[in-house]
Design a protein around this nucleic acid. Structure first.
Lengths: 217, 217
DNA sequence: ATTCATATCAAACGAACGTTTGATTGTCAA
DNA sequence: TTGACAATCAAACGTTCGTTTGATATGAAT
């Protein structure tokens, strides 16, 4: 039986191809026939191995998205552990770098953000899954780290809004690549991504960098 | 012939209901039957008035999204014109306020951002349409305004990245409502939106507000 | 009264969808 | 060699999809 993907099982090939297609087109725009064709297996394989299409979609988040998110979280943690002292600048840079120049390949990155962006805009069971198991713990940990370098007495909400904002910028500059390149007019190559990390870091630390002016009344 | 929506024409009712449904579920997850049922008209009406489903989708962006985006742009422009002198703080606040507490109703806002978020993550012909006619001109105008209050000689790219970042934060806090409320644990009521405007303004102006620290080496 | 264009309708079209079925294969323990 | 089991297959299932068709109603112009 000819199998192009080395010794991957049918289950694994289905998950791989399903993730690519779901990320690219969204759940409803992808058919089971399209997935099984890409995975080079029979149409019935999805139902045999996963029960139905919906469950294959959930399994993509369980067995592909969540572990990758945890890898990213580890990457950030290791970057910070390598610092001799903890600073806000180091933290922001570690996040931006992990998510834009981190351990993920170009394609993996794009898939990762497209999948979660769809879920954030219109959550399904998959969002509940990764929010509970991955996102909330990661956010909490980052917020606790940030607390130690922010002015004392900052409310929990402000703290979370700051973390959400940093994460939001990273997410935005990833999922909105097409829009960004349309507006700026350049490719997402290695050089531009480095400049982007620099920009996100700067912006998250100092905003526009010109402080708040009093408005005349 | 009983028509519930006052004197709206079938075309208008189709556009209204189509926008609501496309924003809520996305193009492929909405059927023509669902739209025509919501608009209380015959199944064939979509093809009669718009040719096909795809063209109805495009017409939603042409005749509903684009004018609303222009209304928002006007709102920002008027807010700024009311200022006696132009400042970065005023500009950021005008943008955040227009997009979160501006002329749009709660529902309109949600629809507006869900539609464009889908297009940014996976652009179709509709994105080309509104990018060329609405978004690019608006971004250019904002960048020109920002240039006058930023240090001289700032590169065009940095200028655009700043504008994109402000816009990105606003977009993010709108389309990712569900995620934000999941993480923070509160509703998007009027009070929270006001705090959000304050946060976005502060963050865009001063970031975390603790400057950039030197990393030890 | 007749004509004509516009709009709406019920009904049907073929295609694609997710899922199920029942037969067939390969593997390995008994 | 046999039996059992998991995996794969072609084929078909019933639904739903976007679209088309041809008939019917409406209103203004001739």
């Amino acid at each position: 039986m000819a199998r192009n993907d080395q010794n991957h099982t049918t289950q694994e090939r289905l998950l791989n191809e399903a993730e690519i297609l779901f990320a690219e087109k969204g759940y409803h725009a992808v058919s089971v026939r399209e997935i099984t064709k890409a995975a080079d297996c029979n149409l019935a394989a999805v139902n045999y191995h996963f029960g139905n299409k919906q469950n294959l979609y959930l399994e993509v988040f369980r067995s592909r998205w969540a572990p990758r998110a945890r890898r990213l979280q580890e990457h950030v943690k290791n970057s910070l552990a390598a610092q001799s002292h903890f600073s806000a600048a180091a933290m922001v840079k570690a996040i931006a770098q992990a998510f834009l120049e981190g351990p993920l390949s170009e394609d993996e990155q794009l898939r990762h953000y497209q999948l979660i962006t769809r879920e954030m805009a219109h959550p399904t069971e998959a969002f509940e899954l990764v929010a509970k198991d991955v996102m909330r713990p990661a956010f909490r940990e980052l917020a606790d780290g940030l607390r130690s370098v922010m002015p004392e007495g900052m409310s929990e909400e402000r703290l979370m809004l700051n973390i959400l904002s940093i994460f939001g910028m990273v997410l935005y500059f990833n999922f909105a690549r097409v829009a960004v390149t349309h507006m700026i007019g350049c490719q997402y190559d290695q050089a531009f991504k480095a400049r982007l990390v620099e920009h996100i870091t700067d912006f998250s630390l100092t905003g526009l960098g010109i402080g708040k002016e009093e408005e005349p009344r």
